[in-house]
């Protein structure tokens, strides 16, 4: 079995091209648990947590480019938290401080869990994922990357290099329901982001479908009833809005929650997020 440390993205491209069955180890917060419980067969591992390019981020104009190995902690606490507040809020909900020191944004995406906490935020923001292999580079939308429960569309020799996240000019909210006040897998989560200049509202849900999903109809509906100049929303449409958000969810029953509680709470979260961002108008 190979245990390799990639020194650069180019080196990583080569190591994967040599043997595409090698698996990538970034923060290890999911990977190592799966290994320890023998839920993951490994023939070779490439540690990518020492690749400098993947650990950096930069702000270019109207977006930030975040390397895939940037940690939750850096997103939660560093300057990124001012640029993408909802992403920082979602990072804060993940695990313990030790987990947030180790876990990475690229890992959150590649793991593709329905409960991946950053995914609804990145969906709502319309982020793009830069995927690379030795032979090609390509850009994927989040919904193109994440295709099912813990399934992504990366081919074996590809890796996530970075994520391009638009910087918007309006308030953002991430809310997550779980039975514990911290360190909990989400039962439901919701991201709502706005851009006042572009009159844009993006809404995405976590843990209520096989993959985190956008609430397109609710977004379209509510955008018809927002006054962007006064930042108000019509009070008589809230109920309808809540219903549309609930309709975009298709939750399951499991040991963490019933589907009816998930549906109920996603509606409540949508209303509360909306009313944190907009005042009620007439």
């Amino acid at each position: 079995m190979d245990f390799l440390i990639a020194s650069s993205t180019e080196n990583l491209c080569n190591l994967l091209a040599e043997d595409p069955t090698r698996q990538l180890l970034a923060g290890g917060t999911d990977f190592m648990v799966e290994v320890n419980f023998r839920h993951r067969d490994i023939s070779g591992v490439i540690a990518i947590d020492r690749i400098k390019e993947l650990k950096q981020w930069r702000h270019d104009g109207d977006s930030v480019l975040i390397g895939s190995c940037v940690t939750y902690k850096e997103i939660e606490q560093g300057p990124l938290s001012a640029l993408i507040p909802a992403l920082a809020q979602s990072a804060r909900t993940i695990g313990s401080p030790q987990i947030r020191n180790a876990g990475t944004i690229g890992g959150n995406l590649a793991t593709a869990s329905p409960a991946g906490d950053m995914i609804p935020v990145l969906l709502a923001l319309g982020a793009e994922v830069n995927v690379r292999s030795k032979s090609k580079v390509r850009q994927l939308r989040i919904d193109e990357l994440i295709t099912g429960v813990k399934v992504n569309s990366l081919s074996e020799d590809e890796f996530i290099e970075s994520i391009r996240v638009p910087v918007l000019s309006g308030p953002q909210e991430f809310l997550k329901v779980g039975p514990r006040n911290a360190m909990v897998i989400s039962v439901t989560s919701l991201a709502m982001v706005t851009d006042i200049e572009k009159k844009y509202i993006g809404i995405a849900l976590g843990s209520v479908s096989a993959s985190p999903c956008r609430s397109d109809e609710a977004e379209y509906f509510i955008s018809q009833h927002i006054d962007w100049d006064s930042m108000t929303v019509q009070s008589d449409v809230i109920e309808n809005f809540e219903r549309l958000v609930k309709e975009s969810a298709s939750p399951i029953d499991d040991h963490r929650s019933s589907s009816s509680y998930r549906t109920h709470t996603v509606g409540v979260l949508a209303r509360r997020a909306l009313l944190r961002i907009f005042r009620l108008g007439i």
């Binding site: 909900t93 006040n181 989400s186 989560s189 509360r272």
Partner: peptide, 13 residues
Amino acid sequence: LPGGTGRTTDKSH
């Protein structure tokens, strides 16, 4: 408040 890091709850709730 209830919800903790999940930021679900304002004082009015």
